[in-house]
Write a protein that binds this DNA or RNA. Structure first.
Lengths: 211, 211
DNA sequence: CTCTTGATGGTACGACCGTACCATAAAAAT
DNA sequence: ATTTTTATGGTACGGTCGTACCATCAAGAG
């Protein structure tokens, strides 16, 4: 046989081609031939690594969420070591906003999958329950922790605020995509709410004995 | 010639068939044959009243927004005569939530159009700029008016709050569609923010000399 | 050195989809 | 009464799409 090839690597390569063409022409318009051409392989190869289009689409979603999680992590890491709760929350939210090309593709394709999953039961809508739930729980925990550290208004409802922030971010992302809103405006709205939630307070509570 | 027929009426009939099947099987999956069957007419008739599928889709969007506007108006009227700013805002927001079958279809199909318009330039994304802008301006005006009447916290930023409320409503609508959130939870979040914005205040400022 | 097996190419099939073409019945215009 | 126009039906064409089938080449296994 020819050189043994790493299946997962090939599948990742093809999945990324799928995401690229979906970001360019829309998820509804991607065919297996388009994916093959974008990945630089033959149609037969796409069939070989993903038997059916349904499985290809499913893996594409999985790959997309993985890449997005990595992106958020990178953004978080880029805010410097040991970021405070507010900086963490801000990085989390801003990473979801389509401000660059990668973010644009993420938001568009992920939204396409979400809408698609409402009517196509083949595409399990499980990811659209689990993934947002995880984000919501993470942000809720962050806000609770900040509140207990005295960094927020003392009477905030952490979960409600987490839901609200994530929800606003998602819709404003779509607004940016369709050209209704510019990114700066969206960021300003988010800052408004973060300012409302996080009080100026005792200016860094831990590890920095009052600068 | 046979009985003269009202073209606009027939077009409306077909457009509603389009919306129904799009709500059932997804906008990406609707073909002209499906629309024809759903409307109870022949494929040729759909071609006759809408030359091309592109024009059919465009008119479908137009019809959808019209019907949605009517729905919001009906909800508003149902809140009784002379509703206060808070009741008005609440009716506006709740009407957009997919709590009944009609709302579900509205939200799903409208979202599908929005996502579609990002990549298919044929579908003018103009409606996705104009229509949300109008809603945002209306709600902003409502909040400003309420603030000047002393019904809200005196320092609210009307536009930012309007944007936030509408954005939260939209995303939570999608969350309901995919089964991540139940309608009651979404309503609770909206109430939380309405409670934050609208102060109990002087309990009706006008026309009711202190109950 | 065979022989199996994994990786890949090419291509054809059946189904569907949007559109175009041709036909026809019936009301209105002449 | 004839002719034009309008509404409608049926159907066929060209393209595309997902999938299945068949072939081939090369690297390990025996």
């Amino acid at each position: 046989m020819p050189k043994r090839v790493d299946h997962e690597e090939r599948r990742a390569q093809i999945a990324e081609a799928l995401i690229r063409v979906a970001g360019r022409r829309g998820l509804h318009a991607v065919g297996m031939r388009d994916v093959a051409a974008e990945a630089g392989v033959s149609l037969r190869l796409v069939q070989y690594y993903f038997e059916t289009k349904e499985k290809l689409l499913f893996h594409g979603l999985q790959h997309l969420t993985d890449r997005f999680t990595a992106r958020v992590g990178a953004r978080l890491a880029a805010t410097g070591p040991e970021p405070g709760p507010r900086a963490t929350a801000e990085a989390l939210l801003l990473a979801s906003l389509p401000t660059d090309e990668e973010g644009r593709t993420f938001h568009l394709v992920y939204s396409s999958y979400a809408i698609l999953s409402v009517t196509d039961e083949a595409l399990a809508s499980q990811p659209f329950v689990d993934h947002p739930d995880a984000a919501e729980n993470a942000l809720t925990g962050l806000l609770e922790q900040a509140r207990e550290a005295g960094l927020t208004a003392p009477d905030i409802d952490a979960r409600v605020e987490a839901i609200s922030l994530l929800a606003m971010t998602a819709t404003m992302g779509t607004s940016i995509l369709v050209g209704q809103r510019d990114p700066e405006s969206a960021v300003a709205v988010l800052h408004h709410h973060l300012d409302r939630i996080f009080t100026p307070g005792p200016t860094q509570a831990v590890a920095t004995g009052r600068a």
